[in-house]
């Protein structure tokens, strides 16, 4: 589903953030992207979101080189993605319902369908009944779960998360990771960037480690 083929990224005027990165991630697979701060984790995710373009190499998603995706097609490509951020990026002037509904509204889904799917997504993250609340009245963990509901409401095939547990205590972090596990089991490709070593130890899944832009797969069974 996702394939990096010798992908490098150099920011204009900066050093190389990613150098010749190779890896593959299939549907129903989950990988943790680890590494020190500044290792290039966010850069890798931004390439997948086409917020940045690779300097070299091919970045294939479902066989299409999205490194060369025409600007006009970017919105349609992004509708296959679900994205979760550390600071959840919820719109504070709207209700939880309206926040979660956004990915459906931008792709023109009918309103009866929107209601159904938003309810289902909120139920899946354990927030059924919170539709009418404002994000700021929720706890940090709840806000992050609203962010996850928004990321999966349109049933994306790829779920990307950049430090989704960064602001949460270990217990809540584990809960969030369990949620990602559930989406993985339903066939979604999940890629989670984190520098939380403890979290990495708890979970039994692939680990892709970045060190100054160089990626290596950690073999946990050695």
């Amino acid at each position: 589903m996702i394939r990096f083929d010798a992908v490098s990224k150099r920011y204009s005027g900066g050093s190389e953030a990613l150098s010749a990165v190779n890896f593959e991630l299939g549907g129903g697979e989950m990988a943790l992207l680890t590494g020190h701060s500044g290792a290039g984790k966010s850069t890798l995710l931004k390439l997948l979101m086409v917020m940045e373009r690779p300097s070299h190499g091919a970045l294939l998603v479902n066989g299409h080189n999205i490194g060369r995706l025409p600007s006009r097609q970017i919105p349609y490509y992004r509708r296959q993605l679900g994205v979760v951020f550390q600071d959840h990026r919820l719109l504070t002037d709207r209700t939880v319902f309206d926040n979660v509904a956004l990915p459906l509204l931008v792709s023109g889904v009918r309103s009866s369908e929107v209601t159904k799917r938003v309810r289902a997504a909120l139920a899946a993250v354990g927030l059924a009944g919170c539709e009418g609340k404002r994000p700021l009245t929720l706890s940090g963990g709840e806000q992050q779960r609203v962010g996850i509901a928004r990321a999966v409401v349109h049933k994306p095939r790829i779920l990307l998360a950049d430090e989704p547990t960064g602001n949460l205590d270990p217990e809540l972090s584990a809960e969030i990771m369990q949620l990602f596990r559930r989406f993985q089991q339903s066939g979604v490709a999940v890629l989670v960037a984190t520098h939380d070593v403890e979290l990495t130890a708890q979970l039994d899944c692939r680990i892709l480690h970045l060190d100054h832009g160089r990626l290596s797969e950690v073999n946990r069974h050695e």
Binding site: P75, Y77, L81, V83, R89, L91, L102, P103, V106, R150
Partner: peptide, 16 residues
Amino acid sequence: REEIVVIKWVGGTDAY
């Protein structure tokens, strides 16, 4: 601005 950024992330077109 914040709203526009989020709309673009979730696949909203410029027209939207």
